[in-house]
């Protein structure tokens, strides 16, 4: 009896795996065409020839003309988006600026932007020093600007901030000859530390070299766009 069992096993065992595969494969094979069409885009591989009949396009010439005119209109609209006044682009990663009028570059140079630092006050307040990104406009232009030092300027130097209108708060030298305010206390201004231009060292404002600042001040009007990225 035992020998009969063994011989039966020897006889049929090699068929077990092929039979299992044989049952499993047709299931997948049957599923494959739909699978390939729906999920794998195999159909697109086989439908290489395009013609109007196969996809049924009418008035092809008319559509080409219409599309061309639409493209021209859209290009015009996109061109109209360019500011009609000079504007400035500030690159905070490379600390460079580009002064432009429409598509023409008027001047390029180095600047200094935010140092991406968070200062923790003794009372635990966190003050980030970062140049904001986005679109701003020149809101105010000032010659020989006076900087009203905020609290952080004192705290950073290990000093106690004085009262709101104390004389120590007013600094006539730090901002250079010109300042262009872009809102929220941020400005484009000069610097005493020209050697740091090109490095991220500021508390959020954009510092510029003297010569560049003068050109920018004279070129950008109030309302001019300032793109910071």
């Amino acid at each position: 009896m035992e020998t009969e069992d063994k011989s039966w096993f020897r006889k049929y065992a090699p068929w077990i795996i092929p039979v299992l595969i044989g049952c499993w494969i047709p299931t997948i094979v049957l599923y494959t065409p739909d699978y390939q069409n729906a999920a794998y885009g195999m159909k697109s591989f086989f439908t290489s020839t395009l013609n109007a009949k196969s996809i049924g396009v009418r008035n092809i010439e008319k559509q080409i003309q219409s599309s061309k005119s639409n493209i021209a209109a859209l290009e015009n609209r996109l061109n109209e988006l360019l500011p009609d006044k000079p504007y400035i682009l500030i690159n905070t990663t490379e600390n460079r600026f580009v002064l432009r009028n429409s598509k023409d570059t008027l001047r390029t140079g180095m600047c200094s932007t935010g140092k991406d630092e968070i200062l923790i006050y003794p009372n635990g307040t966190r003050k980030p020093f970062k140049t904001p990104k986005g679109l701003f406009t020149v809101q105010l232009k000032r010659k020989n600007p006076v900087w009203t030092k905020p609290d952080w300027a004192f705290i950073e130097e290990g000093l106690k901030p004085p009262s709101a209108h104390a004389a120590e708060r007013y600094d006539e030298a730090t901002l250079g000859a010109y300042a262009l305010s872009i809102g929220d206390g941020y400005m484009l201004h000069g610097t005493l530390y020209q050697r740091f231009l090109g490095l991220p060292v500021t508390h959020g404002c954009v510092r510029l070299g003297d010569a560049d600042l003068e050109v920018i001040f004279n070129t950008l009007d109030k309302g001019a766009k300032v793109f910071i990225y």
């Binding site: 020839t49 395009l50 013609n51 109007a52 009949k53 996809i55 049924g56 396009v57 009418r58 008035n59 092809i60 010439e61 559509q63 080409i64 599309s67 061309k68 639409n70 493209i71 859209l74 290009e75 996109l78």
Partner: peptide, 30 residues
């Protein structure tokens, strides 16, 4: 493109149309 029962146009024309439509759509998106 508008499909219809019957139509004319070579493969080149269709390719041209597709390219134009593509440009148009991308400009719209932009």
């Amino acid at each position: 493109p508008e499909p219809e029962e019957a139509g004319t146009g070579s493969e080149d024309d269709l390719m041209k149309l597709f390219e134009l439509k593509k440009t148009e759509m991308l400009l719209r998106a932009q």
